[in-house]
């Protein structure tokens, strides 16, 4: 590909007549010399023209029609947060599936250097110390989970502050609330799986919070934690929720959420 030279400005004469220091005129002369040979700027200008021509083919959005782009452009990057949530969910799912090969949800006693340690705890410790790339794998899973939580929350703020939840997208907002809640349950159940001190006492708090619910507290604690005190039943339930129930439910709900965005189109700012 070659392009005609559009730049017929006489830089040399311009540099001479302008009152420049020796360094400045040398600097400019060198750059003009390079420009004559490498012509990067010409090609960049070509790309620029191409960009604007393609843009002119697009239908005008509401934002452009009413000339809101100049006030609104800085929101646009935040429209990627929903996809960012999806992406971190996929990363967590893949790394989690791989962790599943090495973890077992057992509160039975085991020895791996710490008093009172369990099979579950030792499995996680083994992943970190014995398994090739195990430390990396577990870190990836934890980071993906935390990034997802943050991204989902920020995505919700984006939807709120751009008014995208308004008619006709109320249902997707409600589905979003379900997704935010399920994301947090995902995080909580996963947090308990290493069955270390943090996990154990977080579980204790969970049982007590359940018990504090009026009327149905006992029942909720039984259902979610398998009893009023922590043990094998608790760990097993958390494991099933985390690796069986939630993956199916959350994947389905995300699919519906995205399907609705696809059908309704992205909202113009309100």
């Amino acid at each position: 590909m070659s392009i005609e030279r559009k730049d017929d400005h006489d830089h040399k004469a311009w540099i001479k007549e302008k009152d420049l220091t020796a360094i400045e005129s040398t600097f400019l002369t060198v750059l003009v010399w390079l420009d004559r040979r490498l012509r990067i700027v010409d090609y960049l200008e070509l790309l620029e023209t191409l960009y604007y021509r393609v843009n002119l083919q697009m239908p005008k959005s509401h934002t452009e029609q009413y000339n809101l782009d100049n006030k609104f452009w800085y929101w646009y990057p935040l429209y990627s947060l929903g996809f960012f949530s999806t992406l971190s969910y996929v990363v967590a799912a893949i790394s989690g599936a791989l962790l599943g090969f090495y973890y077992s949800p057992s509160a039975a006693a085991a020895t791996c250097g710490v008093d009172g340690s369990t099979v579950a705890y030792c499995a996680v410790a083994g992943i970190m110390t014995d398994l090739n790339f195990g430390f990396f794998l577990r870190s990836l899973h934890r980071w993906a989970a935390q990034v997802m939580t943050a991204a989902v929350f920020l995505h919700m703020l984006r939807v709120y502050f751009t008014g995208s939840y308004k008619e006709p997208r109320e249902v997707n907002w409600l589905i979003g609330i379900v997704l935010l809640s399920l994301t947090m349950v995902f995080g909580y159940t996963g947090y308990l799986l290493p069955w270390d001190q943090l996990a154990y006492w977080a579980g204790q708090i969970g049982v007590e919070m359940s018990l504090s619910i009026p009327l149905v507290g006992d029942w909720v604690a039984q259902l979610m934690f398998g009893g009023f005190s922590l043990g094998q039943a608790t760990l097993q339930r958390m494991y099933l929720l985390h690796v069986f129930l939630l993956p199916f439910v959350v994947t389905t709900v995300i699919a519906i959420h995205l399907g609705l965005v696809w059908m309704q189109g992205i909202a113009e700012p309100h």
Binding site: D7, H9, H11, W14, K18, L20, E24, L28, L31, V32, L34, D35, L38, I40, V41, L44, E45
Partner: peptide
Amino acid sequence: SIVVPERLYKTVTVFSTL
């Protein structure tokens, strides 16, 4: 600060950044 023609400005930015 020195005001230069626009085309020369592009040359300066592109090549000095590079």
